[in-house]
Structure formats: structure tokens, C-alpha cells
């Protein structure tokens, strides 16, 4: 049996949305808990406890990961971008703007994860995305409101806008 009655805290130091942060944490702390509870970055959501919904997607060293299925200590030394890190100077990121313009959300719970996955998708496939590529690559993000149609439209529009604006990918 485990005798881990005294929790040995471990130090972590990482960059979140361009800012360096460090803390001593219980190793059990999930990255999403660290973001939401330690750093008060509550834009990253938790929609399930089975690693299936994608509401918690953030970028870890530039690639999409589920922050509910990553320990904060695993991100030690890494760079994390959350939904809060996308907008620059009070101006929405083109992908955020596209979701607003195209009615890509209803309750909005899945939206942070959708947008982080969408930005990752543009990084991999470029700004000209067809519907099949978008649908296939968002299959780890579940939305129970929209029926996905407007999400796909938003991602296509946001990708195109990112291409024409050569928008900076915020803190990355």
C-alpha cells in the first residue's frame, strides 16, 4: 500500500502565455488544475473525466494537448499557451473573431478547446482548410450545442484570416 501520507511537493517552472511562473506543487496536480486554480486562468475548461471531450485543450510547446490528461510536472520547463494567451493588445485572435462572426458557439463551454485545436490545425495544415480536414482534425473536440456546422465554418474563416493577416500566434 501507498505510504504517501506526507506529500512531497515538487518544484515546477514553466512559461504560460509568455510569462514565467514557478510553484511548488503536489505531483498529482493536473495541468488544467494548475492553470485554473493556481494561475486563475479559468478559460480552459473541464468537460469530462474520461479524456474524451477536448474542452481542456491547450498548447504545450506549440502542440495541442489535453491539459486534463497531463500533469503540471510533465510541463516543467515547457511553454504553455491557453485561450487567454491568444488575444493581443485587447484585440481578439482571428480565430476567436471568426467564431464570433460565424456564430461558432452557443453555450461556449467547448469553445476554448475548439479554438486551441483550430489554431493547432492551421499550424499543421496552413490557412486553406477544406471541410473534411477540419472535421477529421476536430474529432477530439466534442460540442453538445452547435451540431458542429458553424464551428467548421468558423474554423475555415479563422484559418483564412490567419493566413491573410499573417497573424502572430500570440505567445508562441
Amino acid at each position: 500500500m501507498s505510504e504517501a501520507t506526507t506529500i512531497v511537493r515538487v518544484p515546477v517552472r514553466l512559461t504560460v502565455n509568455g510569462k514565467s511562473v514557478s510553484a511548488e506543487i503536489d505531483p498529482r496536480t493536473l495541468l488544467v488544475q494548475f492553470l485554473r486554480e493556481t494561475l486563475d486562468l479559468t478559460g480552459t475548461h473541464v468537460g469530462c473525466d474520461t479524456s474524451q471531450c477536448g474542452a481542456c485543450v491547450v498548447h504545450l510547446d506549440g502542440v495541442a494537448v489535453k491539459s486534463c490528461t497531463t500533469l503540471a510536472v510533465q510541463a516543467d520547463g515547457a511553454s504553455v499557451t491557453t485561450i487567454e494567451g491568444l488575444a493581443t493588445g485587447g484585440k481578439l485572435h482571428p480565430m476567436q473573431e471568426a467564431f464570433r462572426e460565424n456564430h461558432g458557439l452557443q453555450c461556449g463551454f467547448c469553445t476554448p478547446g475548439m479554438i486551441m485545436s483550430a489554431v493547432d490545425l492551421v499550424a499543421r495544415f496552413g490557412p486553406n482548410l477544406d471541410e473534411a480536414t477540419i472535421r477529421e482534425n476536430l474529432d477530439g473536440n466534442i460540442c453538445r450545442c452547435t451540431g458542429y456546422h458553424n464551428i467548421v465554418k468558423s474554423v475555415a474563416a479563422g484559418a483564412a484570416a490567419m493566413g491573410s493577416a499573417e497573424a502572430p500566434r500570440a505567445a508562441e
Binding site: S51, G54, V57, L60, V63, A64, V65, K66, T69, T70, S117, D120, L121, N137, D139, G140, N141
Partner: peptide, 9 residues
């Protein structure tokens, strides 16, 4: 395998 985020980890 799985989805993009699963494949990244």
C-alpha cells in the same frame, strides 16, 4: 490512433 491531442502525448 485517438485524436490529435492524444497522438501528441
Amino acid at each position: 490512433i485517438g485524436d490529435v491531442a492524444v497522438r501528441n502525448r
